[in-house]
Design a protein around this nucleic acid. Structure first.
Length: 877
RNA sequence: GGGUGAUUAGCUCAGUUGGCUAGAGCACUUCUCUUACAAAGAAGGGGUCACUGGUUCGAGUCCAGUAUCACCCACCA
């Protein structure tokens, strides 16, 4: 056996191991022969940058479940991909274009811009794929998809066609969120709200044919140019007489009505609200119900339109100042109050959103023939999808309940254009003469001329919302091979960050139910956000980012994986920092050294199965039994998706039981077969978490096949002993003796005597059985039971035994007294509590038998210990 | 305004059907380079489980309320 380095060096082996996995072909489910399948479609990162720590976190979770499934013999598919990420990528690439070539997208034109952005994405995707491999994802790269791949896109567009036929899609003028900087409409979820200090302006509107006024309060006085009504609550007695009358809108001098609407809050401002249907969502709703005119006075660049009269061309801000000045001159400004209110901003560029009416494409999410949101709610309520953490279920249902129609058109260039064509003759001909030409033509294939009149056609300028394609990802990816779709859909697991709850998970559920009639995934697992040491989000502006590749280079991929999943429950945020990663680097090294020790044993090899004959000692019984128990618990925890608890359990077993306990013991009582058996199982159990180091050790141990496809350990009930092993007692006995030796500075060559007092026959038996081991490892010459020892000795309590070590002349009476007193205090506290409980009739009558007998047993034991200790204390004078 | 989560050792966090004296890692103190491992080993200190009530024989765990923090949602003009 060649000499192995003391320190595990992940940098030297990880790439090679990944290459072996890939070459083996087992990432591809086609090469696994099984009837059972497992599928996780990986969330596609935006193909415009690089991986960040959040991606690494999600990927780790997915890969852990994936590798677990594969080792359980399932045809396992982790399907990777990339997202074109419409607006975001357009913003990123425009900046790049400007910085590198000094060109705007308008200067190179739509077609060229699209081509260049596409090439950019493909390039980034290549780089990102290499990053994903570094993390160790066992994904099938032969099936990798991009949201704009022709086959993927075709399926997505077919959904659009079908939805259009089913009447779930309409194009109409509605109020939408408009980002003036991005120059596009945004859906509700793409808008953020920010509490901002502002002013509330109270403006007097003169009542027609009267000298009276009605005062309205507004934070946006400039929108009054587009007012078409003033509304009050019908229950508001202050204004009931005015409803039905008209006012003269100042500055514009138009006549508009005073209306009653129950959506108006009596308690806010003056209770009277100016209604601007074109520039406020609620006003738009009210305007629609009252059939009010819509006057667009703000354009798509956030400038006042021609309809704004003398203010035309001003920015919103300028117009506001001018209007306030003019109102003051007219003596129509009653007062200004300071207030904070929430301002809508663009999720991508933080520009203030202008609500305005615009002609956009919408999905009706609550159609009569197929209510997307109701179907989704129904599936969730029936628990067809299990959600981790479970309480996200309610949040999701609430969100669906309040969901409004989904605006799917964007006025950007990057992304799939609507497959909709208009005949250029449609505007020239009357509706009656050529009805069909005025209808839009929906066609996935490119159209050159109008099928009705042969005239020229133009394609709809709009581009799809990114989430329109992403929401179909669960099946568009699989549908490019019909066999895959049949085999893997619905998928087993979806893992995503909690920030995607509304953006993505919700829409995937809706769209999948519509298109396939089935849920997209059976399990929906949310990861929390990864934060820095102080609990802040990682961000470029804060400069606190942790680059996954740097971490991998420094500590290894295994350490990164562990640090991302440990100490975190589903949906909970977790923190990441170097010291934490270091502890898992240290753990990988520990496992490495454990293995190094094992491999250094003569004739060592990994052992798949052992029989009863192979178990020689109490230590062997204990470790194999504990291991079996560990396997059982690990499997349960995997089933319930508690991987961090499972990893914690594995770590405790590996470090404390196996390394510190069994290996130390077995240096004296060798049993390489058990050693090989435990290591075999541990490498398998650890593999999903830390695939690189385990695979490496596996190979060094002489295994020819890959660990990645080895058989996952099964709990064997028949093997499990009825009672737990006494061996931990031997270990602690040993430890206590060694500790005494150390305290008293007894040189290792000097043997000591061990006098044991115990009423427990089983303890005595165990000590006798392990006498050789105790003698050798603790330097004991002779062991005596229940004999009277006179003279100086040190006394300790171990389990059900009092041990005495004669050490004439070496006893520090003061120290011994202190120790004894402290222990006595502890015991008395426990005994008091325990006796009180046992004296309580209710406890005795109501608690389960097992709890009571256990309590009694412990109490008796502790009382005996206490008596001994008191005797001992008395002897120490 | 509505909702969710958090609150356990100096720090970061586990603790899933309520049951022996509440755990881990890091940090700290003391000792040890003993041939798997100093990225380690041994020993040790450190906690009224945010607060107040309730249910229960028994509560870190269940219920109600309070406080502080974080996040999310919302058409507060």
């Amino acid at each position: 056996m060649k000499e192995l380095p003391k320190i595990y060096e992940p940098q030297k082996i990880e790439n090679e191991i990944y290459a072996r996995w890939e070459k083996s072909g087992y990432f591809n489910p086609d090469n696994i022969d099984s009837k059972e399948t497992y599928c996780n479609i990986l969330p596609p990162p935006n193909a415009n940058g690089e991986l960040h720590i959040g991606h690494a976190s999600g990927y780790t979770v997915m890969d852990i479940f994936g590798r677990w499934a594969r080792m359980n013999g399932k045809k396992t598919l982790l399907l990777p991909g990339k997202d074109h990420a419409g607006i975001q990528t357009q913003v990123v690439f425009e900046k790049k274009l400007q910085a590198e070539k000094g060109l705007s997208r308008q200067e190179i034109g739509r077609e060229d811009f699209y081509k260049k952005t596409y090439a950019f994405c493909i390039d980034r995707a290549d780089y990102m794929r290499s990053q994903e491999k570094k993390i160790g994802i066992s994904a099938d790269w032969s099936r990798e998809k991009f949201t704009l791949d022709p086959d993927v896109l075709k399926t997505a567009l077919e959904t659009f066609v079908k939805m259009h036929e089913d009447g779930l899609i309409y194009k109409g003028k509605r109020i939408i969120n408009w980002c003036p900087r991005c120059g596009t409409a945004l859906s509700d979820v793409e808008v953020l709200h920010k509490e901002t200090p502002g002013k509330l302006y109270f403006i007097k509107y003169p009542i027609e044919n009267s000298t009276d006024f009605i005062t309205v309060a507004t934070t946006r006085p400039e929108t009054m140019l587009g007012d078409t009504a003033v509304a009050v609550n019908p229950k508001d007695k202050r204004y009931s007489k005015l409803v039905g009358k008209n006012i003269i809108l100042p500055l514009q001098n138009t006549i508009i009505p005073i209306i009653a609407d129950k959506r108006i809050d009596l308690s806010f401002g003056t209770g009277a609200v100016k209604i601007t249907p074109s520039h406020d969502p609620l006003d738009w709703e009210i305007g629609k119900d009252h059939k009010l005119e819509e006057i667009q006075i703000i354009d798509e660049k956030a400038l006042i339109t021609e309809l704004g009269g003398k203010y035309a061309g001003l920015t919103v801000h300028e117009a506001r100042e001018e209007i306030i000045k003019d109102l003051e001159k007219l003596n129509l400004l009653e007062k200004i109050e300071e207030m904070t209110h929430s301002v809508s901003i663009c999720e991508r560029c933080k520009t203030i959103i202008e609500p305005l009416t615009s002609n956009q494409w919408f999905i009706n999410v609550d159609a009569k023939n197929f209510s997307l949101k109701k179907k989704a709610i129904e599936a969730i309520k029936k628990n067809e999808i299990e959600i981790f953490p479970n309480n996200f279920q309610k949040i999701l249902i609430d969100w669906f309940d309040n969901m409004r129609d989904w605006c799917i058109s964007r006025q950007i260039w990057w992304g799939p254009q609507f497959p909709v064509w208009y005949c250029t003759n449609s505007q020239l001909t009357t509706h009656n003469s050529q009805p069909k030409c005025s209808e839009p033509i929906i066609s996935i294939e490119k159209i050159d001329s109008c099928p009705h009149c042969g005239g020229a056609v133009v394609q709809d300028e709009n581009t799809f919302d990114t989430w329109f394609t992403s929401s179909q990802w669960a099946y568009t990816t699989l549908k490019s091979k019909e066999k895959d779709f049949e085999m893997f859909y619905p998928t087993n697991t979806m893992v995503m960050g909690r920030d995607l709850l509304f953006f993505w998970s919700s829409r995937m559920i809706m769209m999948s139910l519509y298109t396939t009639g089935k849920i997209p995934f059976k399990n929906l697992f949310f990861t929390g956000l990864v934060l820095d040491k102080d609990g802040h989000k990682f961000s470029k502006s804060r400069g606190n980012g942790i680059d996954p590749l740097t971490v991998i280079e420094k500590f290894g991929a295994d350490a990164l994986r562990m640090s991302l999943i440990m100490d975190s429950a589903p949906g909970q945020n977790s923190r990441l920092y170097e010291e934490k990663i270091e502890t898992f680097r240290n753990f990988a090294n520990k496992l490495w050294n454990i293995s190094r020790y094992c491999l250094s044993q003569e004739n060592f090899k990994l052992v798949e199965e052992i029989s009863k004959e192979d178990i020689n000692s109490e230590a062997d019984r204990w470790i194999t039994d504990s291991l079996n128990e560990l396997i059982g618990k690990t499997n349960q925890l995997f089933e319930s998706k508690q991987i961090s608890v499972a990893a914690d359990l594995l770590k405790t077993f590996t470090w404390n039981s196996f390394a510190d306990g069994y290996i130390e013991t077995q240096k004296i009582e060798k049993n390489d077969k058990v050693l090989g058996y435990v290591l075999d199982k541990l490498l398998k159990l650890w593999h999903p978490f830390i695939p690189f180091v385990t695979e490496h050790i596996w190979t060094l141990a002489g295994e020819k096949e890959l660990l990645m496809i080895s058989k996952w350990p099964a709990y064997e009930e028949s093997k499990q002993a009825k009672t737990s092993s006494y061996f931990p007692f031997v270990l602690s006995l040993n430890k206590t003796i060694r500790n005494v030796r150390k305290e008293k500075n007894i040189e290792s060559a000097k043997k000591i005597e061990l006098w044991v007092e115990t009423a427990s026959a089983s303890s005595e038996k165990v000590i006798l059985e392990n006498a050789d081991f105790i003698k050798k490892s603790a330097g004991v010459s002779v062991i005596k039971f229940n004999e009277i020892l006179i003279g100086g000795f040190i006394q300790r309590v171990v389990g059900e035994c009092i041990i005495k070590i004669p050490l004439v002349g070496l006893i520090d009476v003061e120290l011994e007294r202190t120790k004894a007193e402290k222990e006595i205090a502890n015991l008395e506290k426990f005994i008091t509590g325990s006796s009180t409980r046992l004296g309580n009739k209710e406890f005795v009558s109501k608690a389960p038998e097992q709890v009571i007998s256990q309590q009694k047993e412990t109490l008796a034991k502790k009382q005996a210990e206490l008596a001994e200790l008191k005797k001992h204390l008395a002897s120490l004078k």
